[in-house]
């Protein structure tokens, strides 16, 4: 019992320490700042405090199969299995899409592009063939539409579609694709993780 508590405290120590340091450096009255004004703050002031980050990436095919998943700076432990998460993600995207298009006062061109919470921003891009590219980033990242399109046209098409050994409706196992995607994402300016620290 005691050791269990101890361990928990140790685990808890790290992030809270980091958070305390962070708030001391940037915003003294962090608690009364709303999420919105905090984002404004980071984008207005010194670049070294901006921590642009890409958290993870999902690729779904038109049938809802998760073809590929990868994460980079996702620190929090997940409480559910990957399969469950993929199912939830696809279901949510499907619902948001139909909700957004039903609510739209006029015919939409682009449809649903992204949403943000106080902690992260989800970017969505769909090809006419029904492939869904989903990326979660930190809040300070702008539109990722072009980036996701590029992931489609210069990575997915090049290394999966043009590879006759890759079947298009199964999760992607190609190492080449994995490496190219990782390389591409790490080279993005939006990836600039921990620029200030």
């Amino acid at each position: 019992m005691g050791t269990d508590q101890n361990r928990r405290r140790k685990v808890g120590l790290f992030p809270s320490k980091a958070a305390a340091q962070g708030s001391g450096n940037s915003i003294p009255n962090k608690n009364c700042c709303s999420a919105l004004s905090r984002t404004k703050f980071t984008s207005q002031f010194s670049d070294s405090t901006v921590k642009m980050t890409i958290y993870n990436f999902y690729l779904f095919d038109r049938n809802g199969t998760c073809l590929y998943y990868v994460d980079w700076n996702r620190k929090k432990q997940m409480t559910m299995s990957k399969e469950e998460e993929f199912k939830l993600m696809y279901g949510m995207i499907f619902s948001i899409k139909s909700f957004v298009s039903r609510l739209s006062p006029t015919d939409m061109k682009d449809g649903f592009l992204n949403y943000s919470t106080s902690k992260y921003k989800l970017h969505f891009f769909e090809t006419p063939s029904g492939l869904k590219f989903i990326m979660n980033t930190d809040l300070s990242v702008g539109s990722m539409k072009d980036v996701l399109h590029q992931m489609f046209s210069s990575i997915y098409v090049e290394y999966v579609v043009k590879n006759p050994l890759c079947s298009l409706d199964q999760p992607i196992t190609s190492e080449l694709f994995k490496n190219k995607l990782d390389e591409f994402v790490r080279a993005l300016p939006q990836f600039a993780v921990k620029a200030g620290t």
């Binding site: 006419p128 489609f152 046209s153």
Partner: peptide, 16 residues
């Protein structure tokens, strides 16, 4: 055709 369409969409960049 099933594969070609992806290449087409990537290159032509046309919408729906």
């Amino acid at each position: 055709g099933v594969r070609l369409i992806e290449d087409f969409l990537a290159r032509a960049n046309t919408g729906k």
